[in-house]
Every structure is written in structure tokens, then in C-alpha cells.
Design a protein around this nucleic acid. Sequence first.
DNA 1: TGATTGTCTACTAATTTTATAGACAATAAG
DNA 2: CTTATTGTCTATAAAATTAGTAGACAATCA
Lengths: 153, 153
Amino acid sequence: MAPVLTNKGKYGLKAIVHLARLEAGETAQVADVAQRNNIPKKFLDAILLDLRNAGMLRSKKGPGGGYALAKPARSIKVGAVIRALEGPIAPIACASRSAFRACEDCGDIATCPVRSVMSDVRDAIAGVVDNTTVADLVQRSIANAPVHADYTI
Amino acid sequence: MAPVLTNKGKYGLKAIVHLARLEAGETAQVADVAQRNNIPKKFLDAILLDLRNAGMLRSKKGPGGGYALAKPARSIKVGAVIRALEGPIAPIACASRSAFRACEDCGDIATCPVRSVMSDVRDAIAGVVDNTTVADLVQRSIANAPVHADYTI
DNA sequence: TGATTGTCTACTAATTTTATAGACAATAAG
DNA sequence: CTTATTGTCTATAAAATTAGTAGACAATCA
């Protein structure tokens, strides 16, 4: 299959997890997030801007500025991040709820078997990404880490 | 998201459902399958060839030739069709079982939260496409069709 | 032998992804 | 109020992928 999650979405998820791991009130600069996660800085600029415009991040310009979450990590769904950066999650437009569009080659939507199974796929994907939050991702990355990982060289 | 199911996969599914609706022993020519499903003929050539090489279809050249299923529709999984035409179903290579590949920007696969949630998505997608057969698609397209559809003008 | 139908390679066009460049805007510090 | 810093935004370009086409070739049947 064609990639569902492009670099844009991957970088965005990594970045928002990075921000979710900051202490309360703390901010991080784009350059720092980019360097620590091996993300091209200019590309990350555009990504964080999208997430900010979607209401998930807040930002501050000037010296000491940077980015932070705009709301609690547990209230930010992975699906919202992906939709903000990549658009609808449906594998094909005719199976999308938010951006339905019929195929030009489709004779009858009601009887199209491709649409039927891809609707099921859409629901299955949504079932995962809309029931997983950024807070869950933070917890998993910690849970999977070796003990004392922070203290190794 | 980037499209998961490209035209290639969509056309392939439509074509194999078309073939599954033939009567036992019957074959269909590429030109006919293409015309009836609004698929570019030359493009469909390549698609059916892929499905044939994957062992799902059999073909016969020359006058009276054509394509037919190589095995019962209930034994052909939608997932197999998609994998044959589009490759692995995982949204990202690091979450693939059949074609795993680590991201270049990834520091540690074990703690990567993106990989974690995308593995769940992969499993969710596989849960649908590997539990749906071409026979199921045929049945749905019939079940959803209006009564006597075959007799309307 | 000739018409028909699938097989296969090579190629091109269109679209999407992945960035990069550079001007601009806001803010803090001196 | 000037300067350095950091985010904002538009425009553009390179690379990769998808979508489709062209045309020669191979097998089969009448």
C-alpha cells in the first residue's frame, strides 16, 4: 500500500510527544525539537504551524520563545494530529466520513464492494487513532524504555 | 492521510469481484472487464497480470481466451489482493511484519511511540482485510443492490 | 495463415511528498 | 529604541510515486 503515514505525520507525532514530555509551563524551541528528533528544521516549522493552527499547540516568539501543548496531552487524540497533518484517514475518498467524494469510475456507490470493505478499514483505523491520546504515547515510550535509561551515557 | 488504496488496488478489487461473479468455467476478457468497470484497459492489463502472477487468476490467450479466478472466491482474501498490488499494508515500514524497515531518523525502535500506535493500526487494518474474502465482497454487492436490479433498463 | 487475446518492457505525464529559501513579525534584553 | 532571537508565512524546487500509454511479442483458435 501507499504510505498512510508520511514523514510529515510521523514528524508531527514525534514532535508533539516531545512537547508532551516537557514539564508544566516549559517550552521548547523548534531548533531543539528538530535536532533531538532528527527532523529537518524548516520542515518542522511548517508542521508545528499546522498543529498550532489546529489548536493543539501554543507558541511564543522572540528570545525565550518556543512551543508548548495548548491543552492536556490526554485530551489530544492521535487521530486529530494525523487528520491535521495528513487529511482524512479513510483509505479512499468514497469511504471517508469527513471528506466523502465518489469515485468517477463508480457506477453505484450503494453496491460498490470496494467502498464497503474500505469503510470497514476506515472504522478500524479510527478505532485505534481516536482511542489513543498523546498521553498514551508518552506513557508507552516510557514503559518500553529500559530501566534507568536516562542515566546511561 | 496519503491514499492507502490507490487506483491500482481499487481497479484490481473491482476486477476480481467481476471475475468472481462469472459462472463456473466462464472467462472474461480484459477489454470487457475494463469497459464494464470504467478502468483504462492498458492499466488493467498490468493489474490482472500481477494478480495472475500472485496465483489468484488464471488466463488463456487467443480467441475465446480471457481471465478467470484460479481458486474459489472464498479462499481469496482481500488482504492478499491488496498486498499483491500495493505492497505491505502497514502505514509505515517500521510497523510492517512482512517488510519491516527502521526509519533513518529513529533513535530507538523499542521506545518509538509512533511505531507503537502504527503497529496497532496495522493490526486493525489486517483484522479487516484478512478476514474478508472476495466471496464476501460479491455477497455484499448483491445484498446491497435493489431488488430486480438486473432487470431494470 | 491470420485474427484474436494475453504478456511484457519501456517510457511519459501527472501528482504528491519533501523539503528549502528568504522575507516578515513579535518579543525580550540592554 | 535598537538588536538579537525566535516563530510565521509564501513561494519555489527536487525527488518520489502513481497513473497511464505505446508497441513489440507470444500463444491460441478457426
